[in-house]
Design a protein around this nucleic acid. Structure first.
Lengths: 205, 205
DNA sequence: ACCTGAACACCGTTCAAGT
DNA sequence: ACCTGAACACCGTTCAAGT
């Protein structure tokens, strides 16, 4: 079936299918052959639309980042804006946990990352922060979001607690809290975020 | 050269060589064949010592985590302990940037991660924090460290600034600061860490 | 017990060929 | 311009065979 009059593929379709496969089968579960399979096409066909697999992954990363809401800065309240951005960002990564390593490694030429950074930076500067301070603040919040999304509490512990329960006496309580992992993750994130905002109480000059 | 009287390989030698290769050529640059090559051996030989490549990577992660210093809690001053741990942890990841994704994804059965978590937890509880609070505090600091190590400021920006300089007006200043990236990274990290510690000023009850 | 050589089922990517 | 089929140089892993 070569050269159908209506193309079988498009950049958007490939990118969206890649995200769906990653969400379902993990980052390691995505290969160009599997992706082509899901699209009913040969692997080589993908290279008519993306030069490399990394470019597909960049497109996926940009798609996910575009879900992040930065509109909270609109009112001019930078605290509200920062909280809304951080929660939105964290929520998006929680919705796509398998994509998180892609976001965390975040190298390369990723347009939508810049758009997000620009919106946050603009929101802080618009509220009176100096550019350098805005950069630092946005960085610290980003660290919290990426860290929280990358290493949730639960991931630190094996499934059978009994193995090491007696070896690390200080962790006994922590293990008992394992079922509560989601709450602990949120608490740690909120603690960091609120402490940061509180620590900026001096506000922009 | 089968079955030499003194074994060519050992678990430690394989693990140390793997770390050296990752440090030099990146995580993607490590294959079982390359690793075997560096050891003057066939790839299949590695499987006499590690069941899978993932087990080799777990050993590498444990080795790196063991470099983190948690002795700062010894004096009973939790602020000092927390700062020392955070800086040591961040420094270790900065010394092995290519290993960072391995640490960040941090799943699986990693003994030394638990040893580190246990030491930190013990240090906080020993200073009077309730176990649940200790878990939350350690989590927030970990988020900052992992986030800072995963997405340094510089990584967000392409090498040729001019490409998007006019497209994102708010980032103009940030771009000018690109050469200063290392300092911005440190500032963001310090801001988050100190704000967190300040935010805990209430101290343990 | 430890290492080899060959094999298996995969990869990302290229390229001539077809329409 | 877009897709195929075959190929290339790789992967992780297995396994019979050798000492």
């Amino acid at each position: 079936m070569p050269r159908p009059r209506t193309p079988l593929l498009s950049r958007d379709l490939i990118r969206d299918t890649a995200l769906a496969l990653i969400d379902e089968h993990g980052l390691a579960g995505l290969s160009m052959r599997r992706l082509a399979d899901a699209l009913g096409v040969q692997a080589a066909s993908l290279y008519s639309h993306y030069p490399t697999k990394d470019d597909v992954l960049d497109a996926v990363a940009n798609l996910v980042i575009d879900e992040v809401d930065t509109s909270g800065f609109a009112g001019g309240d930078w605290r509200r804006g920062l909280r809304a951005w951080a929660h939105s960002y964290r929520g998006v990564l929680a919705a796509h946990p398998n994509v998180t390593p892609l976001i965390a490694s975040g190298a390369g030429r990723r347009e939508r990352f810049l758009a997000m950074a620009d919106a946050v930076h603009g929101g802080l500067v618009g509220a009176g922060w100096a550019p350098r301070e805005a950069t630092t603040i946005a960085g610290a919040v980003k660290y919290l979001v990426i860290g929280a999304a990358s290493t949730p509490f639960a991931s630190g512990f094996a499934d059978d607690v009994q193995v090491y329960l007696d070896r690390y006496p200080n962790l006994t309580q922590a293990h008992r809290l394992r079922a509560d992992a989601a709450r602990i993750d949120l608490d740690s994130f909120e603690l960091g975020l609120e402490a940061l905002i509180r620590g900026l109480a001096a506000a922009p000059s």
